[in-house]
Nucleic acid binder design. Structure first.
Length: 471
RNA sequence: GGCGACAUAGCCAAGUGGUAAGGCAGAGGACUGCAAAUCCUUUAUCCCCGGUUCGAAUCCGGGUGUCGCCUCCA
């Protein structure tokens, strides 16, 4: 089986062949830490974390770098608004990011460098561009000479003159050409600044990513990812800077995640519909958010609404229920067989294959999740008809879900905790009442337990309980 | 204006040539003291019009509609 992925640069699904397998070098454009991250950011980080996990699962050794942009115009402006220094602001929102990401079960990249800690390699890269005649010093700033780089526009598939039509020059800029962009900004009063051959100043936005990507991962990296809105100008400019300096192919495969819209509209400050992860986590289970995001293909636009999260939650709970029921069936299981086991085992093998095929096809998480639903249905048939259950089979199913969950992390896979003495006694009293067909008392106790978050289910093989699903 | 994406059941969403996965919601049924959970059954002229093909949701052309990028943005 071969892994295929869609490369924005070629606009084709291509077979994935890393430069130096099993190593895969992977750079993801991280957050500008001037605010809490929103659900659209979260989609990008969740999706590419899953990509990384899947590559690991496929036997690659992934080296993943995700940066923090901790100096730029937005940082400076926001720091003023909040009455903090830029460094304090960065610290505040990096901490917030780490917290939000952890709650969303996003695993940190192997390296999370900050722009301000890499001024030296950034300066060196700009110097290399100067040597190539691709950078010029003008009005205190240093600009990239876009016209001097023949491949400009290759990622966004636009000819330079077409891009020019929409380009603008901000007041106070000293560009020779509207497509040129800042590599180094000269210091203005009250702004953080670092020493450089061009005087005090700070790096431009695009150069930090080129610099850090190459610094940690080499001049040609395998994978480079971000939101679709980074295609132009950010990633276009990264290519121009990197290849401009080295003469080498910068990124072999470009991956871009689709937008997440709110109620059919793009999220934007001006519409006032930006949903921060922080805010959403007050209301929703993080696993529901992950399930929702992974239930669509990563490149498709995805609409966010209360109703859609509700649908996702209901679906996820079905899978969660199955896993919980496997656990609950385990204590009574043994070596007896009912003849159903072979059928379920072959379903498991089939699911395994189809799951991998789906993921090999440009990380089709939606199709992969469908496979899990089908396996859960087969498993439920076994739980319904296979009593007293073969322990080995239950464990195989559980192990498979555990393995898949290492990739998606959409389920809690853990043994049910035991209830405290008082609740256990209530359940026993209800059992007694049911034996005596005292339905009024039995139902009363059941309601009582429900009010305390415990749901009872009477199965042919005894009563079982579960916690009321959260949120 | 340039570039591009998308249009599949009430809702969400896979599927890129061989007569439509999966989920949610709904309806009916089985099981249950009642529930819950689960299982079974059930719901699609694949936006429209042409064309290519033995055969198209899938390819080509033309419409229509929605959205995005071209400007900070994940």
């Amino acid at each position: 089986m071969t892994l295929k992925l869609y490369n924005t640069l070629t606009r084709c699904k291509e077979e994935f062949k890393p430069l130096a397998p099993p190593l895969v070098t992977f750079y993801v454009c991280g957050p500008t830490v001037y605010d809490y991250i929103h659900i659209g950011n979260a989609r990008v980080f969740i999706v590419f974390d899953v990509v990384r996990r899947y590559l690991n699962y496929r036997g690659y050794r992934v080296k993943m770098v995700q940066n923090y942009t901790d100096i730029d115009d937005k940082m400076i402006q926001r720091a003023r608004e909040e009455g903090l220094t830029v460094a304090e602001l960065a610290h505040k929102y990096i901490t917030a990011y780490e917290d939000d990401a952890a709650r969303l079960r996003i695993r940190p990249a192997d390296l999370q460098p900050r722009a301000t800690e890499h001024i030296e390699p950034i300066v060196k890269l700009i110097q290399r561009l100067e040597e190539q005649g691709l950078a010029y010093h003008s009005g205190g700033d240093v600009y990239f000479n876009a016209g001097g780089f023949p491949g400009y526009g290759q990622l966004s598939h636009q000819a330079p003159d077409e891009l020019l039509a929409g380009a603008r020059v901000e007041p106070g800029e000293w560009k020779k050409n509207p497509l040129d962009f800042t590599l180094w900004k000269g210091r203005k009063e009250g702004e953080p600044a670092w020493e450089s051959p061009w005087g005090k100043g700070r790096p431009g936005w695009h150069i930090e990513c080129s610099s850090m990507a190459m610094h940690y991962l080499g001049e040609t990296i395998d994978l480079h990812a971000g939101g679709a809105d980074l295609i132009f100008p950010h990633h276009e400019n990264e290519i121009a800077q990197s290849t401009g300096a080295t003469g080498k192919l910068f990124t072999r495969y470009w991956l871009h995640a689709g937008y997440l819209n709110i109620e059919e509209k793009k999220m934007s400050k001006s519409l006032g519909n930006v949903l921060t992860v922080r805010r959403l986590l007050e209301e929703y289970n993080p696993l529901d958010l992950r399930f929702f995001i992974l239930s669509a293909h990563y490149r498709s636009p995805l609409n966010f609404s209360r109703e859609l999260i509700g649908q996702a939650r209901a679906g996820r709970e079905r899978l969660q229920e199955f896993v919980d029921n496997l656990y609950r069936a385990l204590p009574g299981a043994g070596t007896e067989t009912t003849g159903l086991e072979e059928k379920i085992r072959s379903e498991l093998i089939s699911a395994w294959r189809r799951f991998d095929e789906a993921m090999d096809d440009d990380f089709n998480t939606a199709a992969a999740i469908a496979v899990l639903f089908e396996l859960a249905r087969e498993g439920n048939i076994y739980l319904q008809k296979g009593h007293p259950y073969q322990r080995e089979l239950l464990e195989q199913l559980l192990n498979y879900f555990r393995e898949v969950n290492e990739l998606f992390e959409i389920l809690e896979i853990r043994k049910p905790v035991s209830l405290d003495e008082e609740l256990r006694r209530m359940i026993a009293r209800r059992e007694e009442a049911r034996r005596k067909k005292d339905w009024a008392l039995a139902d009363h106790i059941r309601n009582e337990l429900q009010a305390r978050g415990i749901i009872l289910e009477d199965t042919p093989h005894g009563t079982r309980w579960k916690h009321k699903p959260g949120r």
